[in-house]
Design a protein around this nucleic acid. Structure first.
Length: 655
DNA sequence: TGCTATTGTCATCGC
DNA sequence: GAGCGATGACAATAG
């Protein structure tokens, strides 16, 4: 019997969902404001706690989208995080209407319709499908909807009662009445099932809520048809499940699967219970429960969604492919190593919205990364451009002798060197011996010509005054290998001019010299004006040459980053287009089924004359409180109005 | 010989 | 105001 009630209740709810999908407005704001903050968070974007993603600090621009050419693993990491951002951007579940409507119908109060409003001037037949209403909804409903009969009032009382109760024998407790005055009473699904069964009993007993007095003689017939329809509805909805899931099964793209799986995670984060995610349950426990019965609602929803009961209705079946996608990622069958770990991390982040556990998330991510690729974390720490708040090590290159010699100097760089170490290595492997007499090894390792660093201070790391041998500088020119940073011909030209003017310094020395040292050299050697000018020109040109190289390098990096950004956006666009097509397919299938259901319902109803209602003349309308009514199709007076306007225009023209 | 990419240099701006 | 980095513009050169 309870199974029958379950199907009965779910069938009603799902039918209302179907109606809402075709445009019947369902006011859910009043419900969502107080009851479902998780859903609200999802719909309105990330919560403040969620936006405090520590990994924002890993990248300082483009919201972490910029790509560092030195660490593709990290780029993948951030790409995964971008998916999370996209989920946030999407903001709402894939089928918000279904979900909202489902939630709406999980909530009801004991609001009693205004008995005084018994007027029913419309040719409308109200079917007592009410599964819940609120005071606000009732007010809104009172503007244009039906009155309530005594039986309906009793039904409403049943809705608010906790346990089984015989019809009309139970009175609403005062405390519940007080609590429901604001229209915020919530009823568990079992209560809904019970109340609906009582409603059915009322219908069968003749307590029809048909607001049209003229329709009362046909109430018994309507009830019979209605009960029969309800029985058929459950089967139809099961058919709809397969119908809807079929187009969903067309989706084989792993990209979409990933996207859907994220939505599933969102869904579970909203309504999921302990079965879905332990963390979600923790959140539910952490959230103070102010209402009497939210937990059973969530529990039931989670159970259904997690167990994928194929016979439990459209909503559950719609979640089927989502959840399957989720399972794919959770099982990690298709993702190895970092991919699977990051996917899991993404789900964790999604499902820990507002938990304030970002530290735990990040540590989890790092643990995953470390377990997969320990070197990645080394890169995170060692790469100055992507440092995880550790000390910048500069453009060091592990495995080379240059690292140890130059790292110290880079550590002292406040601005952080972000260059590349390969060329630093090359110069040290080639020219150390020749420079050692003039420059210390540390100076050479920080050589200007071979470190395409964007940090000027790192490039022009100044040797200590004591390390600069003012009087011991050799005058030997740079070899071609040593001068690879400078254009050999141009350098030789300056060198030749310097030698011609008897300047005892190489161009490299002049350029690398700190300004204080440079000025000291100018004063100490008593150079002539021409020599000083040449020295300053050599120094200026050398520094500008390096600046130009750095500038061009930056341009290339920027172009590369933009190209990758374009590729990412194109992929995102394609994915969104596929999702749009999927949604259109689903909506089409649901709309088709809605039409069939409406046609079936109308064909089983009778009008005042006892004739079956013509499907084209009547339509089913779902009120804000879930009450379904039959209303005649409003024929827009377009023809008459338009005709009159046309006639008027003709008359005007004639005049 | 023309085209393109690379590199150096100058001028300028802003810090 | 000098020094310096960044950058646009131009020129020279190599392939």
């Amino acid at each position: 019997m309870q199974i029958a009630k379950k199907y009965f209740t779910e069938g009603l709810i799902q039918f209302t969902i179907l109606l809402s999908l075709i445009g019947v407005r369902v006011d859910v704001d009043s419900y969502l404001n107080g009851y479902y903050p998780p859903l609200f968070d999802v719909n309105l974007g990330p919560s403040s706690a969620y936006t405090q993603t520590p990994f924002h600090s890993l990248r300082d621009n483009l919201d972490g989208y910029s790509v560092h050419p030195k660490c593709p693993e990290l780029d993948y990491f951030f790409a995964t995080r971008r998916l999370l951002d996209e989920v946030r951007t999407l903001g709402s579940p894939r089928f918000p209407t279904q979900l909202n409507t489902w939630l709406v119908h999980q909530v009801s109060d004991s609001d009693q319709p205004d008995p005084g409003d018994s007027s029913n001037g419309n040719n409308r037949i109200d079917i007592n499908l009410e599964v819940g209403s609120t005071a606000s909804n009732a007010n809104d409903e009172g503007k244009h909807l039906q009155s309530s009969s005594q039986g309906e009032r009793q039904t409403t009382q049943h809705l608010a009662e906790q346990g089984p109760c015989t019809s009309g024998a139970c009175q609403l407790p005062e405390e519940e009445d007080d609590g429901s005055s604001g229209g915020e009473e919530r009823v568990s699904p079992s209560q809904l099932a019970h109340s609906l069964s009582l409603e059915q009993e009322d219908l069968l007993d003749g307590n029809t809520s048909l607001s049209d007095p003229a329709a009362e003689p046909h109430a018994s017939a309507v009830n019979q048809h209605w009960s029969h329809f309800l029985a058929l509805q459950i089967a139809d909805l099961d058919d709809l499940d397969s119908m809807v899931s079929e187009p969903l099964s067309d989706l084989s793209d792993p990209d979409i699967t990933g996207a859907i799986s994220q939505d599933v995670s969102l869904r579970d984060a909203v309504v999921g219970g302990p079965q879905a995610y332990g963390r979600v349950s923790q959140r539910a426990e952490a959230r103070p429960v102010t209402r009497q019965q939210p937990a059973p609602l969530l529990l039931m929803e989670s159970t259904n969604s997690s167990h994928l009961d194929s016979s439990s209705g459209m909503t559950l079946d719609l979640a089927g492919p989502f959840t399957s996608g989720y399972n794919v990622s959770r099982n990690g069958s298709s993702h190895d190593g970092m991919g699977g770990c990051l996917d899991e991390a993404v789900f964790d982040q999604i499902n820990m919205l507002g938990l304030g556990g970002m530290d735990a998330i990040d540590s989890h991510l790092l643990n995953c990364l470390e377990s997969i690729n320990p070197r990645l974390l080394e890169d995170l720490d060692s790469d100055s451009g992507l440092s995880l708040e550790s000390g910048s090590q500069g453009p060091t290159s592990p495995g080379t002798s240059v690292v140890s010699s130059s790292s110290s100097s880079y550590c002292e760089d406040d601005r952080g060197a972000t260059g590349y170490s390969s060329e630093v290595d090359s110069i040290n492997s080639k020219g150390i011996a020749d420079y050692s007499a003039v420059w210390s090894l540390e100076d050479l390792s920080d050589g200007v010509w071979h470190d395409h660093s964007y940090s000027s201070q790192a490039l022009y790391h100044q040797p200590s005054p004591t390390s600069f041998p003012h009087k011991g500088i050799k005058e030997e020119p740079l070899s071609d290998d040593e001068d690879q940073g400078l254009d050999s011909r141009e350098s030789s030209r300056d060198e030749m001019r310097a030698r011609a003017l008897r300047i005892p310094f190489t161009a490299l020395q002049i350029v690398n010299m700190p300004v204080d040292e440079f000025l000291e050299v100018l004063e100490a050697h008593g150079f002539s004006g021409e020599q000083v000018t040449l020295l300053r020109d050599i120094r200026r040109r050398g520094k500008n040459k390096l600046a130009a190289q750095n500038c061009r390098k930056r341009k290339l990096d920027a172009i590369t980053g933009l190209q990758e950004e374009v590729a990412r956006l194109q992929a995102q666009r394609n994915r969104l287009l596929r999702e749009k097509q999927l949604t259109a397919k689903t909506m089409g299938a649901v709309g088709h089924q809605i039409k069939q259901l409406s046609r079936d319902v109308l064909s089983r109803l009778r009008d005042d004359s006892g004739r079956p209602l013509h499907p084209e003349r009547y339509t089913l309308q779902c009120g804000a409180n879930g009450r379904v009514s039959v209303q005649p199709v409003r024929r827009p007076a377009v023809s008459t109005t338009a005709g009159s306007k046309t006639d008027k225009r003709k008359k005007d023209k004639k005049q």
